[in-house]
Nucleic acid binder design. Structure first.
Lengths: 111, 111
DNA sequence: ATTATAGTCAACTAATTGGTTGAGTAAAGT
DNA sequence: ACTTTACTCAACCAATTAGTTGACTATAAT
């Protein structure tokens, strides 16, 4: 694992450790939208949401495109995949026995 | 999603956002061990590692058992599973096309 | 031309984080 | 009995975070 990969995991997990940011991610999974639109449901200033978006953008989780006077944001999957890949190494600790068995059998089928 | 589930995700992702703590998790996946043993590879004080371990413990990621003068730590899978479950909702954003196709075909087979 | 909208930027604040050191405690080894 | 080991605890420090407000810029609508 390279130092950059470590830093990427740092920023991905850190970005996802805030409920507001996870809500933004969830919202963006339903489709691209603007900052104002994203900010509307939250009981905080536009500046605050803009900062959260900046954190997500710095972590590579969202892409922000300036279009006229609006900022259009969309979700990027790569860092999420890396996070899942890392977590998957500990599958044996979190997969329940039934799932584990199912996977084991599925694998045997392919052999 | 309850407020407690949100708080659990907060602390799980936050705990995993630090490289030292991820290294501890990785080490514990290989088996239970003590604090001193965990601390040995790191270039920081035992107190610092103890604090990291406390963060992991508070997040429910590790169990610390006092045994004589040593603390024995082991990894708990439940919070990791919850984190993976949350991330899995955004599967479509991080699964590459090949995987997506494979899954699509596998599903058709079952229909 | 004026006004409203969408957003940035800088400055400030309070709380949290990740580390340190030094002192202390409790268990185990000699 | 003494020493070493395995820690904990409290105090401190510097950096970061999550929020605020007020002033500003740029684009779009009337």
């Amino acid at each position: 694992m390279t130092v950059q990969q470590m830093a990427q995991l740092d920023s991905t997990f850190s970005a996802l450790s805030d409920g507001t940011r996870r809500a933004i991610v969830a919202r963006l999974a339903d489709g691209e939208t603007t900052l104002s639109d994203l900010a509307a449901p939250f009981d905080m200033s536009l500046t605050a949401v803009s900062k959260h978006l900046r954190v997500l953008s710095d972590a590579g989780l969202v892409d922000i495109e300036k279009r006229g006077r609006t900022r259009h944001c969309r979700l990027k999957g790569a860092p999420i995949k890396e996070a899942v890949d890392w977590l998957s190494k500990y599958e044996s600790f979190w997969i329940d026995r039934f799932d584990a068995l199912a996977r084991h059998l599925a694998k045997e089928d392919n052999d």
